[in-house]
Design a protein around this nucleic acid. Structure first.
Lengths: 352, 352
DNA sequence: TCCTATAAATGGAACGTTCCAATAAATCAA
DNA sequence: TTGATTTATTGGAACGTTCCATTTATAGGA
């Protein structure tokens, strides 16, 4: 149980009758070593139960192979999808990304960033917590650690951003609702301290203006970006003298909450009140009714972010182009009484 | 941009006019240093933009403060909840846990474990991937790294396990269904290579036997532990000559799939076919109809696992007691036509 | 045969910390 | 004043790697 002092390359060297340098070379897969020697060394490695000490190695090598992923809300499946996309590309690059959750808490985020820096990360992909102060990433910048923002951005920072075209997505969604004949629209959920919020709300507003919806007929209700937030938003909206007949929600979680609240009131989402989500998480398709949502190709954005990160590390730069991902509206059943236009859920159960 | 060579304690020492040892002591918050000296040093640390090199420190200190969390499926909200529970306790211990996803892939799991070991983790909380080979954790054991299994266990290993009482949970659920008058029951989803599966199925079977359900009236359909798996299970079951009228699902994801498939066939979950889930993820309560499920207090188990881990590290042992968490059946709307017994979703929207 | 070129293996310094043992300074008892 | 004790500070040797500069072995060319 009480583990003996752990083996080092010197133990291996002794065991295999070679020098530590040779062992090091073998460990790095250098071609300079004679195959038979390499084999002998590898056997010794196995025998002594050696585990590589990356900390010691990093002491010489300047930068590690650890990439950190800092996520603001792990319980939102949306971010899990993002993470999965990133992992796909890191995996094929032989890198294991470490994920850390900040739970939307800037203080926690500071701790997490500090810890990752101390660990000597090679780069960081971050979806910053709400309320992140402008200076939070100064440390990283002065240390020259490559950072990429995913999905969210900070008001004015030079850090590259990988995000969907929020403005356009919201525009499309609003235009769709207006096209369905809705004249009193609402935007539900989110808070104005988020840049994403500004973008989505901006697209929504632009559509309303362009397509002739009077200013007083658009209602904006801020709220938590969760089911609970959606429920609250709907209650607020329906309490108005002239309530809206359709809503674009900040994200799918809010939309689910809205649909739930509608049902609670005996209203049918889609028929009695149109709701559109944003992000198109996997659940959207499986909801009842299936949720119309703005698809942002989450996993694709994750992959993109990972690629950008890899390139930054490789070229030792801390700069990169922003990348705005294409979006498209996936029309399902939750957005208006006209059901002729609905998409079928992607090929499952059709044979039954 | 091209970061100057990063500052070390020697730079700080020079800047503050003290020795490196003094700086080191300050960094560790030692009381041996005169407050004014400490202040001077701290100022220098700020000035040179120093970041602590934990790798170098670990070279001397033998054990790090990194704890790894290895999770088999990050996209299952269930595991996110588990992670959140653990984070709560680690946070208050000043530890930032690193999460890594294995995506239910044993090969990936090997890589992840290797990487974490090389990083010099102080301990590991693992929910092992399906198909993990018995030897996968031998390395960790010989290295003396404390490991705790969460939710899942391996057939015969001495590694402590934190998990819910699967047998009892399944028993309760089955008994409930039988109490509702169901006589032909099914168990949906999961595969027999999982110990959890054996446990849950075991409880289910015991209830059936004890409460007088004939062997030929219980149907077991293995399948993926996902929505998709649930859909498939239902299709299979309904194709039988005498299909079941109720099912206990391996987990909530499967249950959601089953409900979806029922709807697709024009059947109403709850009224036409009773379905019970397992895990009681947050969505269960918000589903339509709300899902009856076995609640396992996921976050609580996460906390427990973290506590056990902390204790193991502290006492330098690799052994600990198993911990089997209490479960209880949360009856909602998805399990039978008798709606008088249903629970109300926890206090939201009641005022409307 | 000797010389050169290439291949394979090696010793030692460095990386940024910690911590022990030692020193220097300050305080106290006599 | 001196010596003993306490309080602050410090130098140096680790820790486990990498990598440069060397050395040693092997092969090829004349």
């Amino acid at each position: 149980m009480a583990s003996r002092p752990k083996a080092t390359i010197l133990d291996i060297a002794r065991e295999a009758g070679v020098s530590k340098s040779t062992v090091s070379l073998v460990l790095q897969g250098s071609g300079l070593i004679r195959p038979e020697t390499a084999l002998k060394v590898r056997k010794a490695i196995e025998d002594v139960g050696y585990v590589y000490n990356r900390g010691a190695a990093n002491l010489r090598k300047a930068h590690s192979n650890v990439i950190g992923m800092v996520i603001n809300d792990l319980t939102n499946p949306f971010f899990a999808e993002l993470a999965v996309g990133m992992e796909r590309v890191f995996q094929s690059a032989g890198i294991v990304p470490f994920i850390a959750n900040t739970a939307e808490n800037p203080v926690r985020q500071e701790e997490v960033l500090k810890s990752l820096m101390e660990q000597g990360v090679a780069g960081l992909i971050v979806s910053p917590a709400r309320g992140t102060t402008p200076g939070a990433f100064r440390r990283l910048e002065t240390a020259g650690v490559p950072v990429v923002f995913a999905m969210r951005r900070l008001p004015d920072s030079r850090i590259p951003v990988i995000a969907p075209d929020n403005h356009r997505g919201a525009y499309l969604a609003a235009a769709h609702l207006i096209g369905k004949g809705h004249r009193r629209l609402a935007f539900f959920g989110g808070t104005s301290d988020l840049v994403v919020y500004q973008e989505r709300l901006g697209g929504f507003r632009e559509a309303c203006e362009t397509l002739g919806i009077a200013r007083r007929d658009v209602l904006v209700v801020e709220g938590e970006t969760s089911r609970r937030g959606g429920i609250a938003c709907l209650e607020t909206a329906l309490a108005m003298p002239e309530p809206p007949t359709a809503a674009l929600c900040f994200n799918d979680a809010v939309a689910f909450g809205v649909m739930l609240a509608l049902r609670k009131r005996g209203l049918e989402p889609g028929a009695d009140f149109a709701v559109v989500g944003f992000d198109d998480v996997v659940e959207a398709e499986h909801y009842m009714p299936a949720l119309t949502s703005v698809s942002v190709d989450t996993a694709g954005l994750g992959e993109r972010a990972a690629h950008v990160m890899l390139k930054m590390i490789q070229s030792r730069t801390t700069r990169a182009e922003d990348h705005i991902g294409a979006v498209n509206l996936v029309v399902r059943e939750s957005c208006g009484p006209d059901r002729r236009t609905q998409n079928r859920p992607a090929g499952m159960g059709d044979a039954a």
